[in-house]
Amino acid sequence: MSANEMATNRIGQPARMRAQSERPSETREHWYLEPEGTLRARVSNLKFWYGDGTQAIDDVSMPLVDKQVTALIGPSGCGKSTFLRCFNRMHDLYQGVKYSGSIKLLPEDENLIDLDPNIVRMRVGMVFQKPNPFPKSIYENVIAGLKIRGISKRGVLDEIVETSLRQAALWDEVKDRLDQPALSMSGGQQQRLCIARALAVQPEILLLDEPTSALDPIATAKIEDLINQLSGKVTVLIVTHNMQQAARISNYTSYMYLGKLIEYNETDSLFTRPMCQRTEDYITGRFG
């Protein structure tokens, strides 16, 4: 992966410090792992400012491994949701925002900060904190993204609706009432419908912004199962306020604090052998 190696150099901290024996250092401010898998995207020196001039992301660099689940954790206000929403240029809906640095899609090597936001959003899917199905039928919701991509053959749509709803573990519950309004479903079902809606267009990256924060524990467990199923098939970037959730569902985890990336590591390592003192403080609850 020569592209990866080049990108590694650009980060400037080729983290060959994967030696398992190494203990976290009191003085280490940041730590990055260079993962071994194929990359789907690489973020380099990303900075982001809101319209009122406040800087929410400060020089974040991290890779995104293909077909793996990467979790973003950190205290509220640390910029993790803001960071996630850079990936589909959601911020561009609001006035005066500014980016610097790059989010390169690989292997195409296109910086999505330079692309048309509309194209980016057709390629990168997103699921929000609160379920936001459209006030239409279940079927209409799943095909919402397909229709605007010019796909309208009934047979194709039917097939995609079924595969997407199966992927979202919703098919068996709704297959007999696809024409019912989506808003008549429970919150957990609505959220899985939103995941199906996003999966239906086969996004290159799927962004999940605290997808279970508005749900009860049973609905949360179903969504976590489904994310586990997606691992190995879809590249997922998920923001979660819940560390146990990150530990349960993700392959890689990033810890963010005050708009900066503190540590990026394999999930198991980050939770068992954090490399930075600040990560350890956070995951052990000694956060101050």
């Binding site: 959003r121 459209f134 605007i148």
Partner: peptide
Amino acid sequence: SMREGAYALGYS
């Protein structure tokens, strides 16, 4: 949130 849902799907 409904608008963002649409834009996130690539709606103009």
